[in-house]
Structures are given as C-alpha cells and as structure tokens.
Write a protein that binds this DNA or RNA. Sequence first.
DNA 1: CAAAGTAGTCAACCAAGTTGTCTAACCTTA
DNA 2: TAAGGTTAGACAACTTGGTTGACTACTTTG
Lengths: 149, 149
Amino acid sequence: MEPVPMLLAMTYRAMGDQFHDRLRQIGLEPLRPAHGYVFRFLKEKRATTVDIGQHLGVTKQAAAKIVAELDEWGYVLREPHPTDKRAQYVALTTKGRDYLKFADNLWADLEAEMAEAIGADTVVTIRQGLAAYLQHVHGEDQPGLRPVW
Amino acid sequence: MEPVPMLLAMTYRAMGDQFHDRLRQIGLEPLRPAHGYVFRFLKEKRATTVDIGQHLGVTKQAAAKIVAELDEWGYVLREPHPTDKRAQYVALTTKGRDYLKFADNLWADLEAEMAEAIGADTVVTIRQGLAAYLQHVHGEDQPGLRPVW
DNA sequence: CAAAGTAGTCAACCAAGTTGTCTAACCTTA
DNA sequence: TAAGGTTAGACAACTTGGTTGACTACTTTG
C-alpha cells in the first residue's frame, strides 16, 4: 500500500496538470502555482513581500522575485506602507482580480468533476480531513504551502 | 474556501517535513523524496533508468542523475539487462532494502498519528478517494509522481 | 536489410530557489 | 534620547535539480 503522501503528490499533480491544460486551451497565460497562491493570499489580507514568502514557504528573496514578475506583468502593484517607511504593501490590480476569479471557477469545475467521479461526500471528507490534520499538526501558524520535492 | 490542491500541497509538505525531521533525529541520512520513491518502485518491479524517470515524472537524464547518486551511496546497483544490450536493470541492494523498510515503518507511524487526529475511517476514505480519482483521471498509466511547483 | 526508434551518456544550459551582505528604517530600553 | 538589536527590502553570487540537444550502440519494424 502506498503511503498517503504519494497519493497527495500524485493527485496534486494530476489536478494541477488539468488546470494548466485548460488555462492554455482558453489562451490565458498560464502562471505558475505560486502566482495563483499569491493572488489568493492577497485577496484576503494586505501583505508585504516578507508575508508572502512566509505564506509560500520560501525566502523573502524568492518571494521578491515572484512579486517583481507579477508587478511587471500588471497583476499586482506596490503601494507604500502606511506606517512603516521600509515596507510596501503588495496589492492586486483589476487584472489580478480577474485572473483569480477565472481560476477559481476553473478549480470549482475540476472539483465538481472530482465529486462526480468519487462522490461529493468523499470530497467533503477529504477536504475536512486534511484541514483538520493541518490544524492538528500546526495550529494557527500554518506551514509553507509549497511542496518540497 | 481553499481549493483542494492547496490542501494537498500543504498536507504533503507537513507530512514530509515530519518524516524528514524524524529521520534526522535518528541519525539516518535523509535522502530526498525522489530517492525513497525510487526504492519503493524498485521493490515491486524491475526497472531501467527510463522506467524510473517516467514513474517520477522527470526526464531520463534527471533520473540517471538520481540513479547515479544512489549507486554511489550503495543503495542500488546496476545489472545488465537480460535481453537488451543497451539497457541496464537497476536493483536495490540490502542497504537500500533496509532503508526502505525503516522508512515504511516511519510512514506507518505518521499515518497512525494522522488517524488518531482525524479518525481512522477518514484516513481510509482519503486514501481510497484519491486512489479512485487518479484511476478515473489517468486509468492504468499513472501520471508522474513529482508535484510540479 | 534498411529505416525508424530507444537506452544510456555527455555536455550546455536554465529556472527557481538559496545564502550572504548591505542600507534604511524601526523598536526597545536604559 | 542615544545605543544596540531587529527588520524590510534590494543586490549579488552561488547551488540545485531539473531541461534540451546531440551522439552511440543497439533494437524493432516494415
């Protein structure tokens, strides 16, 4: 029997591949997972580059590169931090928000297909189970999001 | 609500981090995930470097590097292919088999802890659900194992 | 038996991280 | 309020783990 992490990795890849393929079919430029996760993060809370790095599980320098790309491509912009003159807030542009909305729909589609294949209740169990496990292991301060290969 | 793939990635990382930490505590040299997956693959079937690359989801050249490392460290050896003079079978040494056995126990421990945290039945559902999804998406020829970040 | 395909190796390259260093700004705290 | 420690961000050098491309020896197919 295969260890659970192998199943996690394979499923992650399988879903990611499909996501990527469909984005390409539509003609939307396929950003990497990290970019999408940054969008999602910025939707909920204001964040600096350091925050983003922590969320992704990479160094601040790596996060800075990603932010620089997104800025260059027009998905985010940097605005001065209100109280800390060293820092900058990274914020989504309209283009960034649109991309996120589109991607969310796509994820929902893929999840619906998953539900059709293995049962909606099973998907719910998986979602809740994994979330509960993460909560159990790491409490509030969640680990990096990036899988380490 | 977070998309399922994010949960997969975070859980994969959380489990992998714990696995890695415990190996280190024990003093066993912590190979990368890829190495462990190669062991597991070789346990079940004889395989060439090309087979391994396909299983991991990387090019044959990348697989060749991994095999060369494992050979150098004494975990595997290469033996001539019985019918094809170009090819070589890669086989586990005793050292390799021991490592695998040890790692399997560790995985089992981690999974038991997961079961304790979220319920054994939930773990079973997750396992079966993901396996069924992979089966549904890719049929017999499974996708690469390596998550693409 | 010729043509096309495949296993393995070598080499050059590339992407996406890392560590280390620096400056300017911030935060004690004595 | 000055001093010492910390932090955000930028820049540079480097490492890792992959990629593509080319080539040889061998195999398979028509």
